[in-house]
């Protein structure tokens, strides 16, 4: 399953939390022209370095598909960051 929502939380200097919810699919659709350019750039880079472009695409897809469930939480004194992929 591809990631649906990426949640980022961080604590501001006044102690209050800020939250940012990023819906992956709508944002990917919005940035699709840039993503397309990035894919083309990646394919050219693959051909230049003699790496199979299809293999690279498959590998990146596998990484994306495996992302849901990832969670990073760092709380260090006044600084705190949480990134969660669902």
């Amino acid at each position: 399953m591809i990631p649906q929502v990426v949640t980022a939380r961080w604590r501001r200097s006044d102690g209050r939390w800020r939250r940012l919810f990023v819906p992956v699919l709508p944002v990917a659709l919005l940035l699709s022209p840039l993503l397309l350019l990035a894919v083309f750039g990646g394919m050219i880079a693959c051909l230049a370095t003699r790496v199979s472009p299809l293999g690279a695409l498959r590998g990146v897809g596998r990484v994306l598909w495996a992302l849901p469930g990832t969670r990073f939480e760092i709380d260090d004194g006044r600084m705190a960051v949480l990134v969660s992929v669902r």
Binding site: G59, V63, A66, G69, T70, R71, E73, I74, D75, G77
Partner: peptide, 28 residues
């Protein structure tokens, strides 16, 4: 120091490790 206690909590799907390992097969 004065900042207080630190806490790190990381959860990584094992599937992500597998996918990362498979990416190494692409190295020429």
């Amino acid at each position: 120091f004065d900042d207080g206690p630190s806490r790190i909590n990381v959860r990584v799907p094992l599937q992500l490790l597998r996918a990362g390992v498979r990416l190494t097969t692409l190295i020429p």
